[in-house]
Simulated scan of single mutants.
Amino acid sequence: MSETRILRCLINKAGGNSGAGSKTYRTTLPATWIKELGVTEADRELELTFDGEKIVIKKVK
């Protein structure tokens, strides 16, 4: 399966004990992709790898 989507990144001020000006970055992933990875509420651990140019998301087995 190969599919590309353009998604927005949500940017929020970080709370709690974060330093001044800290931000949190999030994006949502399509449910069909998550289901295809085999992510469930009981088994939802993911491995993310960043090489300076792209982020790869894998299901932890």
Rank of each mutant, 00 (worst) to 15 (best):
G19Q: 12
R5A: 02
T28P: 02
L48F: 11
I34Q: 07
T27K: 03
K54C: 07
L29T: 00
A42G: 13
G16M: 06
T28S: 02
E53N: 14
I57G: 00
E53C: 12
R26F: 05
A20H: 01
T49W: 05
V60F: 05
K59E: 01
N12A: 11
A31D: 05
R44H: 15
A20I: 00
A20T: 02
L29F: 05
S22M: 06
K13C: 09
A20N: 02
E3A: 10
E36S: 15
D51A: 04
Y25A: 01
W33F: 13
L10Y: 10
C9E: 03
L48Q: 06
G15Q: 03
R8D: 02
E53Q: 14
E41R: 15
D51K: 07
Y25S: 00
R5Q: 04
T4D: 12
T27L: 04
G15P: 10
E53P: 06
G16A: 06
R8H: 05
G15T: 09
V39M: 02
G38T: 10
A14G: 06
V39I: 15
W33C: 13
G21N: 03
I11P: 00
K35E: 15
G15M: 03
G38A: 06
R5D: 01
K61P: 06
G15D: 09
T28N: 03
W33A: 08
N12F: 04
K59W: 02
R8I: 01
K35N: 15
L46Y: 05
R5P: 05
L37C: 03
R44F: 13
K54E: 10
I57C: 00
A42W: 07
T24V: 05
E41L: 14
E47K: 14
K59S: 01
M1W: 04
T40K: 08
A31Q: 07
M1D: 12
C9A: 01
G21Q: 00
E53K: 15
I6W: 02
K58F: 05
E41G: 11
F50K: 05
E53V: 14
